[in-house]
Design a protein around this nucleic acid. Structure first.
Length: 701
DNA sequence: GACAGTGAAATTTTT
DNA sequence: TTTCACTGTC
């Protein structure tokens, strides 16, 4: 009758049916972890009578969250109402509903790492960009570890006493602006729950089941959040694999999973060690290498698939040979009836993808590069998003600075600083301050300010429930501005030219460019986005750049406009759109999944994925692991090796080059220490085995 | 504010 | 080698 349970193995089934005490599921690679979680959600609803509404399951990636929801719903439709989110998306959800308790307005927007660095740059005026970035990183790390500017442990992140000051000032500025950064999405909810018993009681009342996927990647702040969310009598279940912890450099704390049994009362532990993904020799190799790590919980995976092809270690001359070898291998397999999508090329650093791309392009081997799509990091997209953010929150200093004089409208640094100063008089509203600051400006600057404010106003007017404000004497300034623009400066040709273009659109004069291309066919929120991009001049500015450099920035803006059409044209819709973009930057390329292509991917990005055939490239000392890795960091690299190897289902190849060009210099390479550690595994050597490898074998083996 | 020229630096990065 | 941040000039 419960046939959805009958396909589980005994341990999986025990994990699914477990209730009561806190549960730690140690799930090795390929042991059916996602299956267990999704089945468990269905089971709790169907068999244990839990209201789906009372179930919270958190993951780290949006992709994982989506997949979990989809799979859980396939087993039990009511899972639709369970809350399956990423940690950060849950934090944002919680924070919007309890913004007041954190001294925030619910219309806050979320600063990404770039925004954070931009804000910090205004605090660390004059500091080199690298230093600002580093400090921004340490602030993020401090928040990962749940440390305040006045925490005693802050020196563990940065021992310099200036850091405390900088962190404090950063926090103060962020509060004044009324926005949050990624770290706040976790840290603030913890603080709210600690300081507001009523809110905490409400949350405890609601969430009776808490589940966490990839628990080995949780940081301290996330652990604290779980602790606050967890109510007496509720059920908590975390799933993870200490051997796959590869993000400690970003604050993930392996101790969370290692210490879980000590941190919660009466924890039950279930190990999932049957691997259904890889053939035995691959799993054996992975196990032998990761066994060199100390401080593991320790588990031996069992290859349910049994024996299979022996992993190959391929010695190649250099990186060009390496790329050719990969292309050959793939082509030969495809000629024999295989698919391109069976294959994945793994590398340690993004820079290594270039060689493969060049070779694959030349050979017409179809490929996709995972994770390199930086759509939301593009200048034009960030500009448009800053305009939208400013509309959402007129106190957003970072957004304001970014777009106030782009395109150039005569608002220089001095004016910007003056406006920021004045803004404190109008509750931090930078647009109001800008409007007021016009009195001291040249007519030209005033014209620029007017068109900027008008554009924002018009776009806001396109949101339901808003009408453009019709005050401020916008009309009066126009006449004077016209005059000023003409007698403005020596670049006589440029200014009138721009005006011509604008007029041409309306009068149908010049045909080459439609005046407001983005507005065509826009609907929903995209109408607002398009109007803002056009009206602010950002679209025109980047279109001009396209003409010169042959880029496709206008097309990218068009993409953004299209994406917005899914949201309602309202203030809430806008906030939702911005939040979605901040929290989920993965671009779902529907074609990618359907087209037959080789996957090029960094080792880090492969977690959670599997491929029939994997080529792990650049397995050389200095590249993987990098030179500077020792102790704990070396162990993390080793886990990365483990993750890479265990992605492979049927075939694994590892390539090791004799020489490699690094930053234009040719270097002699040595096989990775991980390969030496693997030498007791069954591996087939291919190519010219280097002297050092044989030598090492003789002396140690 | 846009440019050319110079010199130093160069991971991984779920959110 | 490439990329970028910084500097000085127009």
């Amino acid at each position: 009758m419960q046939d959805y349970l009958s396909t589980l193995n005994p341990e999986q089934r025990a994990a699914v049916e477990h209730t009561g005490k806190p549960l730690l599921i140690l799930a090795g690679a390929g042991s059916g972890k996602t299956r267990v979680i999704t089945t468990k959600i269905a089971y709790l609803i169907r068999e244990k009578g839990y209201n789906p509404y009372s179930i919270l399951a958190v993951t780290f990636t949006n992709k994982a969250a989506r997949e979990m929801k989809e799979r859980a719903c396939r087993i039990e439709g009511r899972a639709e109402n369970a809350m399956l989110r990423t940690f950060h998306s849950f934090g944002a959800w919680f924070l919007r509903r309890n913004a007041e308790a954190a001294g925030l307005s619910p219309n806050f927007t979320i600063y990404d790492d770039d925004d954070t660095a931009a804000l910090l740059a205004t605090i660390m005026a004059g500091a080199p960009k690298g230093e600002v970035r580093a400090a921004a990183g340490r602030i993020a790390r401090a928040k990962d570890y749940f440390l305040d500017p006045d925490s005693l442990e802050l020196p563990l992140v940065d021992h310099r006493k200036e850091f405390r000051v900088i962190y404090r000032r950063y926090e103060d500025r962020l509060r004044e602006i009324g926005n949050v950064d990624f770290g706040d999405l976790i840290k603030k909810p913890v603080e709210i729950l600690r300081n507001n018993p009523a809110i905490k009681a409400r949350i405890h009342d609601r969430f009776r089941v808490i589940m966490v996927d990839e628990y080995q990647d949780a940081n301290i702040a996330q652990f604290e959040l779980l602790r606050e969310l967890y109510a007496d009598g509720a059920y908590i279940c975390v799933v993870g694999d200490d051997d796959q912890s590869i993000y400690s450099f970003r604050g993930a704390e392996v101790q969370n999973i290692l210490q879980f049994p000590q941190k919660f009362d009466g924890v039950d532990t279930i190990r999932l060690v049957r691997n259904y993904r890889s053939v035995a020799p691959i799993l054996n190799l992975a196990g032998i290498v990761v066994n060199n790590n100390a401080g593991r919980l320790g588990k031996e995976l069992v290859a349910e698939r049994g024996d299979g092809k022996t992993p190959r270690l391929v010695f190649v001359q250099d990186q060009d040979t390496e790329a050719k070898f990969c292309a050959n291998l793939v082509e030969r397999a495809v000629d024999a009836g295989g698919a391109y999508s069976d294959w994945a090329i793994l590398y340690r650093t993004n820079a290594q993808s270039l060689g493969f791309e060049t070779e694959f392009l030349r050979r017409r081997v179809p490929y996709r590069v995972v994770g390199s799509l930086k759509f939301y990091e593009r200048e034009e997209i960030k500009d448009a998003l800053a305009l939208l953010a400013l509309m959402c929150n007129p106190r957003d200093e970072v957004a304001f600075r970014r777009v106030v004089n782009k395109p150039v409208r005569g608002i220089g640094g001095t004016t910007v600083e003056r406006v920021l100063e004045q803004a404190s008089g109008v509750g931090g509203d930078l647009l109001a301050a800008l409007n007021e600051a016009q009195t001291g400006m040249t007519a030209k600057a005033r014209q620029g300010v007017q068109s900027f404010l008008t554009a924002l106003d018009e776009a806001r007017g396109l949101l339901a429930g808003n009408t453009p404000s019709d005050d401020d004497g916008v009309a009066e300034a126009d006449g004077a501005a016209e005059v000023a623009e003409i007698d403005g400066n020596g670049v006589a040709r440029e200014k009138p030219g721009k005006r011509d273009k604008r007029d041409a659109g309306e009068k149908g004069g010049k045909k080459e460019k439609p005046a407001r291309p983005l507005l065509k066919g826009a609907e929903g929120l995209s109408l607002c986005v398009a109007a803002l991009a056009e009206g602010s001049g950002i679209a025109g500015y980047h279109h001009a750049n396209d003409d010169i450099k042959g880029e496709s920035r206008l097309a990218n803006l068009q993409e953004l406009v299209n994406a917005a059409s899914l949201y309602p044209a309202s203030a809430d819709g806008l906030a939702e759109f911005l939040e979605h973009i901040e929290l989920d930057r993965s671009i779902e390329n529907a074609e990618d999944n359907e087209t037959d292509m080789v996957t090029l991917i960094t080792l880090h990005n492969t977690k959670g994925l599997e491929f029939k055939k994997v080529i792990m490239t650049g397995v050389e000392q200095g590249v993987f692991p990098r030179w500077d890795k020792r102790d704990a960091e070396l162990e993390e690299e080793r886990r990365l090796f483990y993750v890479g190897v265990t992605r492979a289902m049927d075939e694994l190849y590892m390539t090791c080059a004799e020489i490699r060009r690094v930053w234009g210099q040719t270097q002699m390479m040595e096989p990775s220490v991980f390969l030496h550690e693997a030498r007791d595994a069954d591996i087939k050597l291919i190519g010219d085995v280097p002297w050092s490898w044989e030598n090492h074998r003789r002396t140690t083996g």
